[in-house]
Design a binder for these strands. Structure first.
Length: 307
DNA sequence: ATCCAGGCTCCTG
DNA sequence: CAGGAGCATGGA
C-alpha cells in the first residue's frame, strides 16, 4: 500500500542541501539516504511503516510504504515530516538577522535553504547524544548501528530491510555485561544509556512534554539524568526536539571551528562560543548545523597550532 | 606507544 | 562557584 502528498514550505528551502546534510551526518544510521530520497521506518499509530521523503517541485513528497501502511497513519506522518525538516519555520528573515556576523552570513548564503534536520525519535536523539559523548563520531555511529541491529525491530519493503530504533522499554531491560559490553560499549555509556531508557520507559522523563516546555525547563529536566550534562541536553533540544535557537556551546567540534573561523588560532572557549552565538539569535540551531556541515570540509585544510 | 574524540561526574581550592 | 583530575573505549 502506498499513499502520498506534497508538503510545501515557505521559501527558502533546499531539498538537495537537506540530503547532503543527512548523507554526511553520523547520526543517520537508521535512515537510508538514496540519490533522491530519505527513507526510514517509524512507528505511526502503533504500527511500523516506511516513511519516504523526496523532492517534489518546491516542496517535499511524503509517502508511506509497507504491509501495514494505512491512510489512518497519514496525518501523523505529515506532522512528523513537517517537524523533521522544520517545514513550518519562517526562515525568510534569517539572512538579514545574521548579517552582522560575516562568518554565519557567508554560511547562510552558501547553504541557503538548509534547515536543521531532526532525528525522528526524541529518545533516539538522547541515546545518540550519550553515545557521542567524548568519542569519535564514527565510532559512535558504529555503536548506534550495533544497538539498532541488536535490539530494534525491522521492516522489509521491496527487498530492503529497515530497522526501527529500539523502544525505551526494550533498552531499559538491558545490562552492560550481557548486552552492551559485547557491542563495545564502555561501562559508562552502558550505564547512561540504560538509565535514560528507564527514565523514559518509566515515565520519569516525558520527552513529548519537553518539546512544549520552555528551554530552561527542558534543559533542567534532561540534566537531572545521570550522564546527561549541558552538552547532551542542548543536543537533544536541537536535534531531537526541534528548538530553533539552542546550541551546545561546549562542543569540541564547534569550539574548534569557531576558533579557526574567528581567528583565535586555538580552540574557542565555551564562553567565547556563547558570546559569538549571541549574534546568531534566534537561529542558533541553524548556525550550529551550518557550522557542523563545514566540519568535514575543514578536515582537509591544514591545521594550524590550536589548543 | 601516544594522543584524541561532537563529555560527565566528582572532588578540590 | 570555577577549575581540573580521572574516567572508559576504540581508532589513527
Amino acid at each position: 500500500m502506498s499513499i502520498s502528498s506534497v508538503l510545501v514550505p515557505a521559501a527558502p528551502f533546499s531539498w538537495p542541501l537537506t540530503l547532503e546534510y543527512l548523507r554526511t551526518s553520523p547520526s543517520a544510521v537508521v535512515e537510508r539516504i538514496t540519490d533522491s530520497a530519505y527513507e526510514r521506518a517509524v512507528p505511526l499509530e502503533g504500527r511500523p511503516v516506511l516513511l519516504r521523503l523526496e523532492s517534489a517541485g518546491a516542496g517535499v513528497r511524503l509517502s508511506l510504504h509497507g504491509p501495514e501502511a494505512s491512510a489512518a497513519q497519514f496525518p501523523a506522518a505529515e506532522r512528523l515530516a513537517r517537524r523533521l525538516l522544520h517545514l513550518d519555520a519562517h526562515t525568510a528573515a534569517l539572512e538579514g538577522d545574521v548579517a552582522g556576523d560575516p562568518v554565519f552570513a557567508a554560511l547562510a548564503a552558501r547553504y541557503r535553504g538548509l534547515r536543521p534536520v531532526l532525528i525522528a525519535d526524541p529518545f533516539e536523539s538522547l541515546v545518540w547524544a550519550i553515545l557521542g559523548q567524548q568519542i569519535n563520531v564514527i565510532f559512535a555511529a558504529k555503536l548506534k548501528r550495533a544497538l539498532v541491529e541488536g535490539f530494534g525491530t525491522a521492516l522489509t519493503v521491496a527487498g530492503h530491510t529497515y530497522h526501527l530504533f529500539p523502544e525505551a522499554e526494550r533498552l531499559a531491560g538491558l545490562t552492560h555485561e550481557r548486552d552492551l559490553r559485547p557491542l563495545q560499549f564502555s561501562r559508562q555509556k552502558s550505564e547512561y544509556t540504560i538509565l535514560a531508557a528507564r527514565a523514559v520507559a518509566g515515565g520519569a522523563l516525558d520527552l513529548a512534554a519537553l518539546a512544549a516546555a520552555g528551554e530552561e525547563e527542558a534543559l533542567a529536566r534532561l540534566m537531572a539524568l545521570k550522564g546527561v550534562g549541558r552538552w547532551t541536553a542542548e543536543y537533544v533540544l536541537m536535534r531531537g526536539l526541534g528548538f530553533p535557537d539552542v546550541l551546545p556551546a561546549g562542543d569540541g567540534g564547534l569550539r574548534r571551528i569557531i576558533g579557526r573561523a574567528y581567528g583565535y588560532g586555538r580552540l574557542a572557549t565555551e564562553a567565547e562560543v556563547r558570546a559569538i552565538a549571541a549574534a546568531w539569535r534566534p537561529w542558533r540551531s541553524y548556525a550550529q548545523l551550518h557550522l557542523w556541515q563545514t566540519l568535514s570540509a575543514l578536515e582537509d585544510l591544514p591545521d594550524p597550532e590550536e589548543k
